[in-house]
Amino acid sequence: MQPCRLAAYDIACRRGDRILFRGLAFELAPGDVLHLSGPNGIGKSSLIRILCGLLRPFYGHVEQAGRIALCDERLPIDGHQPLAQALDFWRRIDAGIGGAGEARADFGLEDLLDVPVRYLSTGQRKRAALAQLAASGAKVWLLDEPLNGLDSHWGAAAQAAVEAHRAMGGIAVIASHQPLNISRLTSMSLLDYLP
């Protein structure tokens, strides 16, 4: 596995007229897991989007090596398709760009594979999104509120999947207002970076 890396240098984020945070910096090496915390509206999701390059930072820059995968509150899966077919669509794309990995994590989706995605519950959709993330083969995982909608059993399973990912030399950044039960966690509160 080639080494991956994610580093942020002096990041500031502006939404509208407001500076949400500034001076934010960190450097992550293989095996690192970063927990971003802070109250609603402080800019956790914006930071996640900055880190994956979808949003330009107001100031500073992000350096990255290794492919990034994002799991946020949306589920980019067609509702009318059975889950198996919908997950297969992303598997084909990931294989097409040369990255599909083996889905190591188990999110208990076997019984749901022939169910059209629109019939899935919130928690089941979240599990599908996490399974898609785990199968993407990306080295850097960015998770925005991954525990939302999951019960305690699958919440633990999601955190175990992150542990497994880091054990394989991956990086994870988790934005969550909930406490996480992951060992050797680097914590960062966005409250410390208010302007």
Binding site: G53, L54, R67, I68, R74, P76, D94
Partner: peptide, 16 residues
């Protein structure tokens, strides 16, 4: 619909 569901973001992350 695809923009809303995040398809374009996911494709962008995959370098498409």
């Amino acid at each position: 619909p695809d923009l809303e569901a995040g398809f374009f973001d996911q494709w962008a992350l995959r370098g498409l």
